[in-house]
Every structure is written in C-alpha cells, then in structure tokens.
Design a binder for these strands. Sequence first.
RNA 1: GCCCAUGUAGCUCAGUGGUAGAGCACUUCCUUGGUAAGGAAGAGGUCACGGGUUCAAGUCCCGUCGUGGGCUCCA
Length: 577
Amino acid sequence: MDISILRHSASHLMAMAIKRLFKEVHFGIGPAIDDGFYYDIDLDKRLEPEDLIKIEEEMKKIVKEGLPFERIEITRDEAEKFFLEKNENFKVEIIRDLPSDVKIVSLYRNGDFVDLCRGPHVDNTKDIKYFKLLNLAGAYWRGNEKNKMLQRIYGTAFFKKEDLDEYLKFLEDVKTRDHRILGKDLKLFSTSEDIGPGLILWHPKGSIIRHIIETFWKEKHFESGYELLYTPHIGRAFLWETSGHLGFYNENMYAPINIDDQNFYIKPMNCPFHILVYKNSLHSYKELPIRYAELGTVYRYERSGVLHGLMRVRGFTQDDAHIICKKEEVKDEIKRVIDFCLFMLKTFGFSEYKIFLSTRPKEKYVGSLEDWQLAEESLEDAIKSSGYEYDIDDGGGAFYGPKIDIKIKDALKRDWQCSTIQFDFNLPERFDMSYIGSDGEKHRPYMIHRALLGSIERFFGVLIEHYKGAFPVWLSPEEVRILTINENHEKYANEIFENLKNKKLRVKKDFTNEKLSKKIRDAQLEKVPYMIIIGDKEIEHNTISIRTRQNKNLDIKNVDDFLKYILEKVENKDIEI
RNA sequence: GCCCAUGUAGCUCAGUGGUAGAGCACUUCCUUGGUAAGGAAGAGGUCACGGGUUCAAGUCCCGUCGUGGGCUCCA
C-alpha cells in the first residue's frame, strides 16, 4: 500500500481528534505530503505545542477504538447540503468548485466523524500505528494571502516503527547540520540587527572559504573560455527601463537613489551591464561565442518572512555569466554549460543531480514560437547528449525564455536548487544587440544566462550543511593545527609550523597552557582536519604525530611525507581527509 | 507582508511583580600535563528598542526591530 494513503488517513485521524477536543472547529484541507501530512483548521483557540501532545493522545485513543473508514457516495448537491448544515464552509467551497462533470462525491466516515474525501484510506484507524505530530504553522486558505489565515498542523506517519524512528532521527540530523547554527559555532558568518535582515557578514573563516571557491571558479572559467567582468552596483533608471526590469521585476527592486536629480537603482541582476559591455563595440560573427562571467553582487527585495540564513537573503553574489552566440552555436554552448556545471558541482562533492527543463509558459511570453522551439530543443538535446535523466516542467519557463534548472542532492538526500541555465529572447531585442555576419549585415545574437553555483551565499549554506561544517581539506579554513604538550616543545613545533606555512598551507598553532586533551577537543570542535602533536617523543625522533578530526592517527611520521600527503589531497580536492 | 512563537553576558540558557544568575568562552595566576574539558580568581548586562500599567517591571500591556516555524515567491 502506498504510504500516502496511510498519511492521508492519519490526517483524518488527526482531524477527528481535534473535533473531539475542540468542538468549534472548521476544516480546510488535510492532504498527505512528501514527508507526512497536514490539516488546515479554523479554530478560535490558538494552538500551542502542548496541544499537539493532547491531540496525539486523543489520536491514540481513536486508534484503539478501531473505527473503520467507511466510504459513502452521495450526489454533490447532497454533499453541499450536508456540509452547509454542519457549517463546514471550506468544504462547501471545495464542492462548489469541483468540475461540473463531477456528479458524485465521496465522504469517509469513522464513527461520528465524516469528512469530504476522494480517498482511498486504510481500512481502520487501528492500521495507523506509528505517527507523530510535528509542528504548527499559519497557512492561508488555498494559499492565497487575501484569504483567511488558518492554523496548520504538520505530522507524519509510517507503516513501521523503525521508519518513523529513522525519520525522527533524520529531523534531528537536519537540526545538527543547520548552517545557521554551524555558521555561528564555526565563526563563518553572521548577520546583524544593526545592518538589516538578509545581509550577510562574512567572517574571516567564511571569507577564506569564499576566496577559495571564487579563485577556483575564476580559474576554471578562464580555462573554459570565459572572460571576467566587473560591473557597478547601481545604474540609471533608463537602463532598467530599457531592460524591462522596472516593469516586470519592480517588486523585487529597491527604491531608487536620487543623485543629481537622476534616479539610480541598485542592481537586482547583472545582465544589463554585461550587455552594455558587449555593445561598447561592434562584433563580428568571428568573435562569437562571447562568454562574459562575473561574480556579481545583486540586491533584491524579499519579503521579511521568507528570509532564511544564507539560503534566502537580500544581498547576494551570483556566479553569473552571459553567453552571446549565433543560432547554430546554441546547442553546443548549452551542452558545454551543462558539462561545466556538473564538473563544478562534482568538485564540491555533489554527485547526484536532478535536471529540470522548463518550457514556454502557456500565456505570457516574448519571442516567436520558432525561437522557443529552437531553444527548447537545444536545451533538451544538450541534456540528452550529456546522458542525464531529466524531467520536464511544462510551462514553467520564464516569460523571456525556457530554462534548465539543476538540483543537487546533499548528504541527507535533500534537493537544493543552485544552478540555472536560462535562454533570453527578451534582452537582445530590448537592447538591440547585434553582430555583423559573414554577409556584412547586422544579426541578432542569442543570449544564454547562467549561474552554476547560483548564489555564493546559498551555495555556501548548502556546503556547510552537506559537510556538517567539516569541509574537505582544500576548503577548510584551517587545514592543520599544531599542538604542543608543554612549552619545551615550542621551538621544534615552530619549525614544523614554518615548514607547512612555506607550502602555503593554512596552519595555526595552539601553544596555550592547556592539557593536550583540551587542545585536541578545541581543534576537534572547530573541525580542523589535521592536528599535529609535538612532544618529547617527536623531538627525540625528529618526527610528528598526526591525528585527524575523525579520531584517527595517521601512520605518517615524517614531515615531508605529510606534506606530500596533504598537498596531494588539496591539489586533488579530495572529499575524504 | 501575513499567522504563531521568541529576544536576559560573546555563546547556550535559568530567572512569572520586590537588590540580575549558571555553564562555556574571555583575562590573570597556579598547574608542565601524550590524543575530546586540570584548578583558582577576575572581568563581563540600560534584561532588543520605545511607550504604558504599578509604590515597584527582565517579568504584565501596546508598538517597533530582529530571529524561528509556516503561507506565497525564488538564486
């Protein structure tokens, strides 16, 4: 049996328990979702976490009562009348909105509790054994903020106790990986009330990681035929009128800054600037494709309620690029981008992907149908020839072009969307971009907009959670820490330190007046991959002892051997230490 | 933005109307210790901010800001 049936039944079970505990309650919808189920309810009393426990207990009672799920079919008119009498207006609304060809609706009954439901369900409440209510939230009726705010209760249910336990453990694991907590503990980044929400302060340890990411990124972009750009953070209103952003992206843009009686806007995207670099001179078809890349910092207004650590912020840096090319180059360029993208993601330790192709929206779109067809085919061909599986999100493209989104799976198998490859029919037209073809005439180039890591902030957040803060050596803010046992060992330890330092390793000393076990604990909590321990034995034999953050001692005793070992790990960007 | 919760030392948190607390971190001293916390002392707070109720507010009420869980949208 499908688990969603069990969860859907659990949602009925919960509703029944709520109805027993709180008489004056009205029900919205209560579906099964990916990880469990929820029910939206309209209740005057504000539910508190303790209420969840009470509801859960009531649910257990109903399970014991062993009430069968009984399917009743009636006409929609009868159903409407039934729920009208019960004052269940949300249900009435659902029935009224059913397609006109639906004549018969089904109800499910357990004892005296009846709910509108398509079903199917488990046979009996006693089949719902392993469940847990998880959290409370507000949710608008039908997801529309103009509607009434209901109280939503989330829960989950499983067939087997082990599965429920495993899921609860997963939730705990998610908590211990939270990048906001780790970011604070490991001193990677912070936000400040004095600066404002959604604006990130990168601390030295986070900044060094960002520097490594960006340096690697630039290197690989040069190798892949990109040219690097730096562009301003603000631009005249005229620019954003031309690009159309003031029209279609206005609600994400900040109010203008008035300078010498002219309005300037903080950039929410980099594209217009890249286009103006292109337009600064005439281009021959021989120059194409042109690939402009920039780590461009943009600012977008996001509603306060959606901000979340590094994952959703108001100021962020996109690893942006715009590829300007001829029609016949499109397919090849897309393929190159996909390969490049997957190479980058893989280097950072992500090797499972989901690829989505989003096609032309049904109504609002720019560009000709031919253009769309070419673009969609090119995107699809490129994915196919890369040999990856993909799903099609029909009608999910932007109005200015179709796109490919790549979602990565992290260590907990959660999906994250970072990469996006988007076709743009809009901007080349609006900015009247052109190149001179072999016929001596002007032609309109095609433009592809892409971000591989997406935003550096979000990508960093995903990295932190993926590695639980224990980064591979090449990304670790501190690669090695040298610990002495007492002050007599400092001179020798300093020699080792200088030796590693000379090889550009990020190494720190802990010569503090503490016991070794304390120093190890400190290094361990900071997730430093390698600890070098120096005591009498090491000095006597001219060796080092190396402990890894995985509580293991390396066999290597010789400094040069260790250097060879670690530098190879760094060079190869090994995930394992 | 909306609903709910929440904001006390750098961090984690206790403190339900009557003289601001603990642990960790920090500073100093003692200790010279071999693989996840040695000991002592010290310093550290306009209890987010602004109003109000009260003889008295960290505590009760209102507002603002921040944070968290969601709704909607997205990198």
